[in-house]
């Protein structure tokens, strides 16, 4: 245990924690996305899926607790790591060019914090049902349709999903680097892995709200 702790104290330890928890979160995000694509299958099918999830009971809670723990670890280590790097260069360059890194890589923490805020809002919205247009705990389908007909809510989700895509754009690549997974057999394609996942996530998630907004799903 003390060895694990002392490893966590190194920056590499924290990175690994971040990557492993990031991996869990990515897993959830993709699963969640696939799940709610079920909206396209119609009201009954989707509500049945929602009911099935709720019926899992203890399993559901275990998954929720696991995810929450991952999220907490992810955020805490992210903040600690960022703090170390912040103090590594107190005087900035007058001129500095970057060749490789991009906006998404440099905004991981802030993007991540915005995601955190979104998750809070989102839970309040769809799970606790304490905000937004009046909902029915048994009609997930209807709730969604109601919500995304409100332009402000739609806007929040669009922004949040773009943030998520950016986070994953650097995050997935970084995660693979940190965990030392390289897929050499993919050749040049492996550099497309992270952008690919990011794009699929954005498109997958936004397809439903947008479909609702333009009236394809009612």
């Amino acid at each position: 245990m003390s060895r694990a702790l002392s490893f966590y104290r190194t920056s590499v330890g924290k990175k690994i924690v971040m990557a492993v928890t990031g991996f869990m979160l990515v897993g959830f995000v993709i699963g969640h996305m696939v799940g709610h694509l079920g909206m396209f299958a119609g009201k009954e099918a989707y509500n049945a899926y929602a009911a099935f999830l709720k019926s899992l009971g203890a399993g559901l809670w275990a998954a929720r607790i696991g995810l929450l723990a991952a999220l907490v670890l992810h955020v805490v280590s992210a903040i600690q790591v960022k703090r170390q790097s912040r103090t590594a260069r107190s005087q900035d360059y007058a001129v500095k060019k970057n060749l490789e890194t991009g906006l998404s890589a440099r905004t991981m923490l802030y993007g991540g914090l915005l995601l955190l805020a979104f998750i809070g809002y989102h839970l309040a919205h769809f799970t606790l049902l304490v905000t937004g247009p009046g909902y029915s705990p048994t009609d997930a389908y209807g709730n969604m349709v109601a919500a995304f007909n409100v332009p402000a809510i739609l806007a929040v989700y669009i922004v949040a999903m773009i943030m998520l895509g950016m986070h994953l754009y650097h995050g997935v690549w970084s995660m693979l680097q940190t965990l030392g997974v390289d897929f050499p057999e993919l050749g040049a394609l492996r550099y497309k892995l992270a952008p690919g996942i990011a794009a699929v996530t954005i498109i997958g998630y936004l397809s439903v709200p947008l479909a609702i907004a333009i009236g394809v799903i009612k």
Partner: peptide, 18 residues
């Protein structure tokens, strides 16, 4: 080595690739 790396005040890697 990683411990010393951190102690010397170097930042953490976040795979920026620069």
């Amino acid at each position: 080595m990683v411990n010393t790396h951190d102690e010397m005040g170097f930042g953490a890697c976040s795979n920026h690739g620069e």
